[in-house]
Structures are given as C-alpha cells and as structure tokens.
C-alpha cells in the first residue's frame, strides 16, 4: 500500500555494529524504519544520515542501505564528536517532514535512544515509540493510525496527529535484502554541516567493553541459624520434572500448570 505521494517522510539511518564481530552493518531497527518508509511512499522516501561521510565504514553501510532500492541518501557531514541531535534539529527546523522514522536506539556510542525524543520535543511534535506499522494516514484530519509493539507479540493501536516522530521496533517487518547492484548505483549526496556543536557531555565518560553482569544469587533471609545452615547446605531443588503415565491425570496436571502460569 502506498500512501499519498505528497506525504513527506524522512527516515534517519545510522551505522550499526554487529554484536559479535563488531563490524559495521545496517542498524537493525533503522533498516526496519527504512523498510516501513519504503512501504509507505516507495520512491518518495527521503533518507538522511548524519555522521562522518568520509569514513569507509560509513560508506559501506550507507551502500547497504542504498541496496534496499534507494536512489540516494542525504548525508550531513559532521565531525566525530558532534552532537547529532543538534544538527538534526537545525536540519528539520525550517522544513519539518510529516513523519520522521527512526530506529529505537543506536547500536554503538551512548545508545540512549534519546534522538527521537529530543527531536519531537524540540520540534514540538508528538512521538510514538516502538511502532511496527503505520496502518493509515488521513491527510484531511491530519491523523495517522499506528501499531505499537507490546511485549509478547501484542499490539496496541494508536492514533497520532501529523507531523510526528516514530521509532520503529524490532517487531516490525524485517528489512528487505540489500542488493549489490542497487547499492553500487545509488548516490550519497554529501552536505557539509558546519554548524555542528560538540557533545561536551561525553568528555568525561569512560567507555569499556561490557562486563558480564553478576548473576543475582538467591539470597535467603533466614531468621534462624537452622534456616541459614539449610540454605547453605541444601541441594538445589528441581532438575527432573514430574512424569505422569496416565493421560487423564496428565491432562489435569498440564491444565493446572497452564492456569498457574496464567496462560488460559
């Protein structure tokens, strides 16, 4: 379904990072945002990247995005330490699109997920988060219906007024494959952006690779010495489950388990 072609939709993309190899890649959520944008307006989608346009990692990943069938990606070239939320705001202040699609959070850096919120706040437009789809857009009333992902595969329907920022959830449809031929032929339109402001907040941060978080032990708040002793020496319960050979009885047991787990 392709909506009104006059609809102005911008998707923001970033450089992702593979969790295991650390290699640059399409950011998973951004690629989904792009997929959603392409579904909505196909060729009229605008795609924007802010970062260092000249780094080889950037170029290779942006090509991967281009491979999804884009004619071009706008690139705002800013230095590495720049605060991109500021740049973004400057970019959109004059000309606010109808819908700004983003991923939930970046795959590297601070990864706070604040960009869409800051944009929405400063442009004074609403933000809907974790969406999986935009069901309808009514240009007359200026309202759109979107689906929001809830835990366990549930969905909530939300009506939101245009223009708005939407962050796309991992539960949204998977992005299409990036085709090498399209990637090579797509264009990166680079604009220098000199008004960038450095992100001073990060200066005193220390970044290390993630430590394993200690697993929480079951702490026994024993009130008596006996309880404490038992807790320290007792074998861990469980392991082998219950085995039932009678079909009637087992049906009852399964039913009980399902009810205990609130599955019915």
């Amino acid at each position: 379904m392709i909506f009104d072609p006059s609809l102005n939709i911008v998707t923001l993309v970033s450089i992702g990072e593979h969790p295991l190899s650390g290699r640059p890649r399409r950011a998973e959520q951004d690629a989904r945002a792009l997929e959603l944008g392409l579904k909505l307006v196909a060729d009229n989608l605008q795609v924007l990247y802010i970062g260092q346009a000249k780094s080889p990692a950037t170029v290779s990943v942006l090509k991967d995005y281009l491979g999804m069938g884009l004619g071009q990606i706008q690139v705002l070239d800013v230095p590495p330490q720049a605060d991109i939320s500021n740049t973004l705001l400057e970019n959109f202040k004059a000309n606010c699109p109808d819908i700004i699609l983003t991923g939930g959070r970046a795959e590297n850096g601070e990864s706070s997920g604040m960009i869409p919120y800051l944009l929405a706040e400063q442009l004074n437009i609403p933000i809907v988060t974790s969406i999986t789809d935009i069901v309808s857009i009514d240009m007359l009333t200026g309202l759109a219906e979107v689906l929001q992902a809830l835990p366990r595969g549930q969905r909530r329907k939300i009506k939101v007024s245009l223009p708005f920022v939407a962050s796309v959830d991992m539960a949204a449809p998977a992005p299409r494959q990036s085709a090498y031929g399209c990637a090579m032929r797509g264009q990166l339109v680079v604009k220098d952006f000199n008004q960038s402001i450095d992100d001073v907040g990060q200066r005193h941060w220390q970044v290390n690779s993630a430590q394993m978080r200690p697993k929480r032990l079951k702490i026994v708040k024993a009130k008596t010495a006996a309880d404490r002793f038992k807790a320290a020496t007792a074998k861990i319960q469980g392991g082998s489950g219950k085995v039932i050979y009678d079909s009637k009885e087992s049906a009852q047991e399964i039913f009980k388990l399902l009810r205990d787990e609130e599955m019915l």
Binding site: E17, P19, G22, N108, G109, E110, S111, S112, V207, S209
Partner: peptide, 26 residues
Amino acid sequence: PACGVWKVNGEQLVCRGGAGKTDITR
C-alpha cells in the same frame, strides 16, 4: 538521562551503551 544504568558507585554510574556491547562509566 543516564540510560541502561546497572550499577551505581557513589557518584559514578555504570551504564550499558552500544546496544549492550559497552559499559560507560559516567
């Protein structure tokens, strides 16, 4: 905001960054 905070050491925070790949002490 400090997002993904998993440890508070006095006036220092340890947060998960980089989609879970890094620890940021701030």
